[in-house]
Design a protein around this nucleic acid. Sequence first.
DNA 1: CCCGTATGGATACAGTTGTATCCTAACGAG
DNA 2: CTCGTTAGGATACAACTGTATCCATACGGG
Lengths: 191, 191
Amino acid sequence: MTEALLRIAGTRGLQAVSMREIAAEAGVSLRVVQYYFTNKQALLESGLTELGARMDRRVKRRVAAVAGELTPRDVFAAVLGVIVPFDEQSRLDAMAWTAYYTAALTDPVLAAAGLALPDALENFLTVRLTAAQQAGDIAPDRDPRTEVAGLLALANGLTSSVLSRQRTHEAATEIIDYHLDRLFGPDLAPT
Amino acid sequence: MTEALLRIAGTRGLQAVSMREIAAEAGVSLRVVQYYFTNKQALLESGLTELGARMDRRVKRRVAAVAGELTPRDVFAAVLGVIVPFDEQSRLDAMAWTAYYTAALTDPVLAAAGLALPDALENFLTVRLTAAQQAGDIAPDRDPRTEVAGLLALANGLTSSVLSRQRTHEAATEIIDYHLDRLFGPDLAPT
DNA sequence: CCCGTATGGATACAGTTGTATCCTAACGAG
DNA sequence: CTCGTTAGGATACAACTGTATCCATACGGG
């Protein structure tokens, strides 16, 4: 049922999401939607939670696919590579996520629930990059906090352009890889 | 009246924009809104046009403020510096712009009218950067098209984080300047 | 003076929205 | 068997939406 919500949000936008639309999309009656989600707000929050869970699953899958030891660069490639949509499903999710993010800018309730994830992500990556710097994996004159902020902003901006079909997923990935090469140095680039 | 529209879109979101709300915000009657904008769609399009015009005005103002000759870096600093919100007014406009952009992702009518500007901007900057490269202002191993795409994506991503108050305008500008320094070389950096 | 046109006030209307209410079934515990 | 709880169908309701209609005024050219 939350899946129906995200399907609508990803194809027709959050503003097209109504209790009745979800009921129709999920093939149930309006009452059932009301029954399992008392509020529309509870419904929306469940969508946001599910989006976060999907993102998490994708990162874990990518990390698990890495053979051998996990380099810091692998972590960044996995996280950033998951932000930019790479297939139909992740494109729909990214659409829904953008819709949520925009809504959160003017809705304080959604903001509290939705802006925590990007923040946590930035902190997580900053911690990892700082550790990588102390281990000598990146140059000492880099500022981990600034680099992470720049990379996340880049990935988000690229996502926008991929969603609007201004750019393909491959072109976006290339740009990200280029920046990762510069940060981690060519000796750490994947073969 | 279009101003009232953008004020609402920037503070409460596009979905809060209704004919009656605009009438109230502009201090006129509903009929007047209907009279000057026959459709709601015409109303929305006028908002988009106005946003583009404001962006244009800001760029021109920055360009005009440059003393002496206009370096390629000045052009980029002006354009990118105008994308990231820097005062209350530009913050509201960026909010409205984000709302429009998100709506355009699922509304083909808005997409045709709204995605033309970013596209034109990217082409314009690519032409300028290619010329700058031929003049020796940037290293010959850079790909102008990729560099422009990356910078615009970065600026857009930073705008998102500034709008969500995750980052200040100053922090965003710093990151952009850092990337411009790397692209144009320190010898062309502003004093 | 007179009338077409621009401007705008008041109200109506059908559709959609979130939410609430009322009524059935099913079903396991006692 | 009975009863409380879970699950869901049918419908109602007030609020809001975009749009349309009916009217009144102003006003400049003939």
